[in-house]
């Protein structure tokens, strides 16, 4: 039982990281039918902005973080939308898939070429002191990451449901044409979504990197898992992505311990296939009203 609890708690902590990455996927999908295959790299990059600030420019950590937020919003939010997504949107999903895969390669190789191929330690935002909770070892950092992920989702839901801009964004996601007729500035709403995604990517990056270490290739594994989490949870629901992320984190640990370590990564894949066949809208998703 102790073992199970330990696996469960550790899985939740890792899963909350997956969830942060997965939320971005669902946001972009809702707002603009963008499947972002570079999402993993979006989370890899901001940590390097911070490191570049502290190591090369000699900035203090908080200043470097502030600059990294701005850079992330500009490049991963505004730039990504203006330069890549806007021109591609009229051509459907496939060119976007290809272009974002290429973008992922570009970001990965860019970091490797201009920064380093080595993994770098990243300063922890929270103490990694270990607490003993009901026989399971869990660090302060794990708890903080979990709380921040939950907090981010709660805030987002509040924002989307409780503010005018939020409701306009939802309207845009549900039916851009009607929203436009009703006077919603659709283009600006879509931009907000991209900015939120960039902000979440930054948040995920600084939370993950102390645990995961900053490395150019981090996005490869992370992107795929986040992607699976988003689909399993529900591609069109923020809380679906949260549930999907947490579920994958826990399932990964449980299957490694109780099924087979060498097939641990097969379990999420099989889950993905079953979910798509049985409940394509995802565990918590609503059936899509819009034909794609």
């Amino acid at each position: 039982m102790n073992t199970f609890f330990q696996l469960f708690v550790s899985g939740l902590a890792t899963g909350s990281i997956y969830a942060l990455a997965a939320i971005g996927f669902t946001l972009l999908w809702q707002a603009s039918q963008t499947i972002n295959f570079a999402q993993g790299e979006f989370i890899m990059l901001p940590a390097f902005f911070v490191l570049a600030g502290t190591q090369f420019l000699g900035l203090s950590f908080p200043v470097a973080m502030a600059i990294a937020v701005v850079l992330s919003l500009l490049l991963l939010g505004l730039g990504f939308k203006r330069i890549i997504i806007d021109p591609l949107l009229p051509h459907g999903v496939l060119p976007i898939v290809i272009a974002t895969i290429a973008l992922g390669i570009l970001m990965k190789e860019g970091v490797k070429q201009f920064y380093t191929a080595e993994a770098l330690p990243f300063p922890a935002l929270f103490s990694d002191r270990t607490l003993n909770v009901l026989g399971a070892a869990i660090s302060v950092q794990d708890i903080a990451v979990l709380l921040i992920a939950l907090g981010a989702v709660a805030l987002l839901q509040l924002f989307l449901n409780g503010t005018k801009i939020g409701r306009c964004m939802q309207a845009t996601a549900q039916n851009p044409n009607v929203a436009e007729i009703l006077g919603v500035p659709v283009r600006r709403m879509i931009l907000y979504t991209f900015l939120i995604n960039a902000g979440l990517a930054f948040l995920a990056s600084v939370l993950i990197s102390p645990i995961y270490l900053a490395k150019f290739s981090n996005g490869e594994t992370l992107g795929l898992i986040a992607f699976i989490a988003a689909i399993v949870g529900g591609f069109n629901q923020i809380r679906g992505a949260l549930a999907g992320g947490l579920l994958l984190g826990v399932i990964d640990n449980l299957s490694a311990a109780y099924v087979s370590a060498s097939y641990r990564s097969a379990v999420p894949l099989i889950l993905l296939i079953i979910i798509i066949l049985v409940r394509p809208q995802g565990l918590l998703g609503k059936a899509e009203g819009r034909t794609v």
Binding site: H91, P95, I101, L103
Partner: peptide, 12 residues
């Protein structure tokens, strides 16, 4: 990197 940029440009 160049390869990736070329693909993006082609898609656009």
């Amino acid at each position: 990197m160049i390869y990736a940029v070329l693909v993006i440009v082609l898609m656009i």
